[in-house]
Amino acid sequence: MAFSRPMKLMSFSSLLLLLVLVLVLISLAKAQRPTETIVEFYLQDLASGSNATVVPITGIKNKPLSFTTFGTIFTIDDPITQTSDRNSTEIGRAQGMLVASALSGSNVHVLVSFSFSNGSSLEIQGTSRQFERYKELSVVSGTGSFRYVRGYATLETIYYDNKTSYSIVRCTVRIIQS
């Protein structure tokens, strides 16, 4: 069946209205984009002695309790400081568990809360690849100032004393608040 008259295209005013609507929607989408916040702090980690902040709590019978022995579970309560200096202001505690989770001893599963002195916290979880310089973990949530955040944390050991098992870990957290 043939049309007796040509189909009418959209009128100029309708086209202009559609264009304005698209531009408004684009500007609203840009205005609602979340912004990234970067926070940097340091963990003061001591794995030996009477004041140890990381201690093994259990493991596989007849196997050594170490970070590279599959099945070893550690608990952690590291001070969080503003700078890498051991005497820097403490701004919170890193508290949780570490589990040697790879048969090869190469990975530790991390479940840690960065609990800050102001009452806020960040919840960190993921696989820490022990022999890599940078360990990237997920920020899965938070409380207080960090409620509903998501992002990732990069951990880098910037100092290690083999004799005392003392290390300083720089933690850079990149988060987006929903």
Results as ranks from 00 to 15, higher is better:
G126Q: 06
D45W: 06
I76K: 15
L43F: 07
T37S: 08
G119H: 01
K135H: 11
S88F: 13
N51A: 14
G92K: 00
R129S: 10
T89A: 09
A102Q: 04
G119D: 03
L25E: 14
G144E: 03
S117C: 04
M1E: 02
Q177V: 05
L16F: 05
Y160M: 08
D161W: 06
T68F: 08
N162V: 14
L17T: 11
V24D: 13
N62T: 13
I26R: 13
S48Y: 04
L21Q: 05
K63R: 14
L137W: 09
Y152G: 09
F41Q: 07
G119Y: 01
R86N: 11
F114P: 00
S128A: 12
T69D: 11
N62W: 07
V99Q: 00
E123W: 07
R174Q: 05
T35A: 07
G142E: 10
F131I: 11
K135R: 15
S165W: 04
R33P: 01
K135V: 09
T143G: 15
D45S: 10
M97C: 00
T154Q: 15
F131E: 09
T172K: 14
T172S: 09
K63T: 15
R129E: 11
R170F: 03
Y159W: 03
F114L: 10
S101F: 03
L25A: 15
L25M: 14
F114D: 00
Y148Q: 10
S104W: 03
Q44S: 08
Q130R: 06
T157F: 02
T89H: 12
Y152N: 12
R174E: 05
Q44L: 08
T58F: 08
E123N: 12
Q32A: 14
Y134C: 04
I73G: 05
R86F: 12
S117R: 03
Q177T: 04
K8Q: 07
V20C: 05
R93M: 09
N62D: 15
L19W: 11
V112W: 00
F67E: 12
A102F: 00
R150Y: 10
Q44G: 08
V55L: 11
A153Y: 03
L18Y: 06
